[in-house]
Amino acid sequence: MADKTVQLAHGAGGKLSHELMEGLILPAFSNAALDVLHDGARLTDLSGRLAFTTDSYVVQPRFFPGGNIGKLAVCGTVNDLAMTGAVPRYISCGLILEEGLPFAELTEILQTMKRMAEEAGISIVTGDTKVVEHGKADGLYINTAGIGELIEGTNIDPRSVKPGMKVLLSGTLGDHAATVLAGRHGLSLPEDIKTDCAPLAAMVQGILAAAPHTACLRDPTRGGVAAVLNEIAESAQVGIRIEEDAIPVRPAVQGVCDMLGFDPLTLANEGKCIAFVPAEEAEAALAAMKESPYGQEACILGETTEEAPGTVALETAIGGLRIVDMPLGAIVPRIC
C-alpha cells in the first residue's frame, strides 16, 4: 500500500470506498459510535447546555513544521468549542480528497487526527469522504464540526466584557503563521520554531475553574490578536489598551516579520487563547494558563477601558500611542 494513491472510485461508494473506510479511516478513528457505520452517530450521553461549531481546513502546504492539516482540523474545532466555555465531546470529519493523493500522506494525516482527538478527550464519531478530480482540491480539504457541553456556571459572551478587565494572552504570537508563510517565501526557520497548533480544552477548563467570572475567551486564529481585540472592543463597546512591550513574540518569528513586512499582531495562531478576566481574578487566570504546557509564556497584554469604546490602542515601546486596526485580509510579503 506504500505507493497507493487515492482514486476517483474511492469516493464512489463501491468496493474501493469500502476499502478506504476499512483500511484507513476506521483503524484510525475507531470508537463505539463510529464503528456502527450508520448514516449518523447516535449520541446518548450528552446533557445540559450544548455548544456546536464547524470549520473547514484548506491550508497549504499540508505538512509544516510541528503539524499538518489534520492536526489543525481537530485542534481548530476543539478550540472553537473550548472558547465558548464548553468541554468538547464529539467531532465529525468530512474529507474532500483529490485524486492522486498518496495513501501514505492520508494515513499520516488521519493518525495525527487520532492522536489529537485522544489528547483532547474527544471521539470522531461521524464523517464523510468525497474524491474530486486531479487539480481540484490541493491534495485534501477537511471539514470538522464539533459538539461540547457548556461548563456549569460560566457565561462566555463578548458582550459581558466590561471596562477595567484584564486582557490575558496564553503565549507567543505568530508561530503558526510564520511557520506556514516562511516556507512559501524561501525562508528557513530554526528548528525550535514550529506551529503552535494545540488543543486548548484543558487549559480553558483550568482558566474557568480559577477565574469563574471570565467574560470572554477567543482563539486568535485568522486575523490574529488585532482582529480579536477589534471584534471584542466593537461588540462590548469598550476601549482596549495594550502595551507593545508586553507582546510576546519569539525572535525568529519577529525575524520573519521584519524580512517580509508582517505585523505579529495580525498573524494567525492555532494554539493560543485570549481571555477577558475581571481584574481581581486575573492573577489566578494567568497562573492557570501557565499550568498548561501550552501556556508557559502567558502574560497580561493590557486592559479594557471606558475611554475610546470600540477602539484598540497600543502604547508603543517609546511611549507613543497608536490605533491597532482590523487587519485587511491576505498577508503577502511587501518590499515597502
Binding site: 497600543l314 508603543t316 517609546i318 507613543g320 500611542l321 497608536r322 515597502c336
Partner: peptide, 14 residues
C-alpha cells in the same frame, strides 16, 4: 516606510 514607522511608533501625538 518612514510614513509607516512614524504611525506605528505613535510619534505624531508626541
Amino acid at each position: 516606510t518612514h510614513t509607516v514607522s512614524i504611525f506605528r511608533a505613535g510619534i505624531r501625538p508626541m
